[in-house]
Design a protein around this nucleic acid. Sequence first.
DNA 1: CGTCAAAGACAGAACGTTCGTTCTCCCTTT
DNA 2: AAAGGGAGAACGAACGTTCTGTCTTTGACG
Lengths: 187, 187
Amino acid sequence: MSTTPPSPRERLLETASRLFYAEGIHTVPVDRLVTQADVTRATFYRHFPAKEDLVVAYLRATDARLRGAVETAVARGAAEQGVSAVLDLIGETTCAAGFRGCHFINAAAEYPDASDPVREAIAEHRAWFQQTVTELAARAGHPDPAYAGRVLVLLHDGALAGAQLDDPEAVRATVRRAGHDLLGLPH
Amino acid sequence: MSTTPPSPRERLLETASRLFYAEGIHTVPVDRLVTQADVTRATFYRHFPAKEDLVVAYLRATDARLRGAVETAVARGAAEQGVSAVLDLIGETTCAAGFRGCHFINAAAEYPDASDPVREAIAEHRAWFQQTVTELAARAGHPDPAYAGRVLVLLHDGALAGAQLDDPEAVRATVRRAGHDLLGLPH
DNA sequence: CGTCAAAGACAGAACGTTCGTTCTCCCTTT
DNA sequence: AAAGGGAGAACGAACGTTCTGTCTTTGACG
């Protein structure tokens, strides 16, 4: 089962994810994207009508990847451990090498227009996450799943926004302790 | 005591704060800045050697404004109420008209280089906030002021990052409840 | 009190660069 | 024959920055 070599479209998406996340969206020109993806300009515009379409595709691909990561992290334990697994996943994310905040929050900073397709992709991702963690809290028997879900989103946003500017390990510890305190989990 | 009319430099700073915050930094060209500030290009470059210098000045001015806001909000009550005042201030910020997240977190998304002067200004602001809320927690008699301070920063970051993308009122309520739960304050 | 020089601001053109996008031409694969 | 990709030139627009020239304000000094 040898994997087929990545198509130009896949190379573009992978390069976009890497560069957009590491350097911001507006600061990465099309020239760098096609050069690093080893693709010609014509190929770029054959797959994406404009740069913004690649931005949306990048966010949707990231969304799909994160859904998978949450699924596998949660599936490892029993229902009561799902919430704790999300807290751990947040900590691992903020302390990973090359961490530079949340793909979606960062993108939102560069796309202020709430009706922009980029913002729609962001909203869809956030709605999924909100719903997922709320269901996790309900399944774990939390008395107020809606509140628990909003707490998890709040801690997630705070961790990813702050850890790139402060000490990531301190943020990880704070998230874990605060999450367990708020949601009645054992330390 | 009639106020003197704002100088070109002040007009530039006010315009920069308004436009950079509402639309992002890289998306606002110098042309829009000088037009809306009613200033010529020559005047712009007489006060700021480059656009990035205006960005730094904008962040430092915002930092000064926020220090004042926290001071007055805290000064209104006794020592034990300082932490609660910060929580209230966060809620008011996220629910204000035109709210679009945190000036500094948004700017960091557009300036990935940690050694950039913009990032230095961001780091200074965050260090001040971290230290201020930690001292507030200590003054209020919290048993673990360092943890309480990190919790306040975490809630602050999460609220400002999330409220622009979700329901601000829900975020406000969550921050208040979670903050009081975590820090042992009465509801 | 009057004067002159320096500084700051206005108006607008202009420069060089970079960006997103399009185009032409050729090659390979199916 | 058709479609997808490679190579690279080219275009028009937008951007940050500089320049030329004129006018007003200001303050030091005769």
